[in-house]
Design a binder for these strands. Structure first.
Lengths: 94, 94
DNA sequence: CTGTGACTGTTAGTCCGTT
DNA sequence: AAACGGACTAACAGTCACA
């Protein structure tokens, strides 16, 4: 259950930011936040509020759900399941 | 831009909760939160932190991205575009 | 069972600077 | 450009009485 996704959300924000080639400082300014705070979020040391994350996402031109989808992907990658191959059930052709 | 999604996130949580037929009281207890705090979130009067939302989502057996996808849907519905009726071009029946 | 205002302690979030 | 620290203020977490 209780996997703390905070660091993954931070990484997701970082990845999304780097894609736009904007600095933390610049993003922070545009989102109306402090640069040290954005740093703390990306490093997974902070527990940001809904509004803070929304502002960040808005400035990165993504919706919040995209951030969390990415975060969950990142969390999933680290959760090394035993590489179970997806078996596609062949469809009975009738 | 700056559409405040806080109330939509609250509604999303409420919808997700009602789907499971559990009371605020019950959910709050299971998520380790206060009953009135959950109420405040659902009513959009609170600006919850990432961790608060994560606890709630976990108890509702959904991922946070699902919450935000629903929230965005709700926000879209309320964005009443000028009631533009979708005009389906009637297909000439011959 | 749920909504709200008010309250306290904690933390979110800022601003300074250093590495 | 980014991580990190300290001191600071605004806002949130968490709770209660009451509606």
């Amino acid at each position: 259950m209780g996997v703390d996704i905070t660091p993954y959300v931070g990484t997701a924000f970082r990845l999304l930011r780097e894609r736009t080639e904007v600095s933390q400082e610049d993003l922070a300014f545009r989102a109306g936040l402090d640069r040290t705070y954005v740093s703390g979020i990306e490093c997974g040391r902070r527990n940001p509020s809904l509004k803070s994350m929304q502002h960040l996402a808005a400035e990165l031109s993504v919706s919040l759900d995209q951030v969390f989808i990415l975060a969950r992907k990142l969390a999933g990658q680290t959760e090394k399941l035993p590489a179970q191959k997806r078996v596609r059930k062949p469809r009975a052709h009738g």
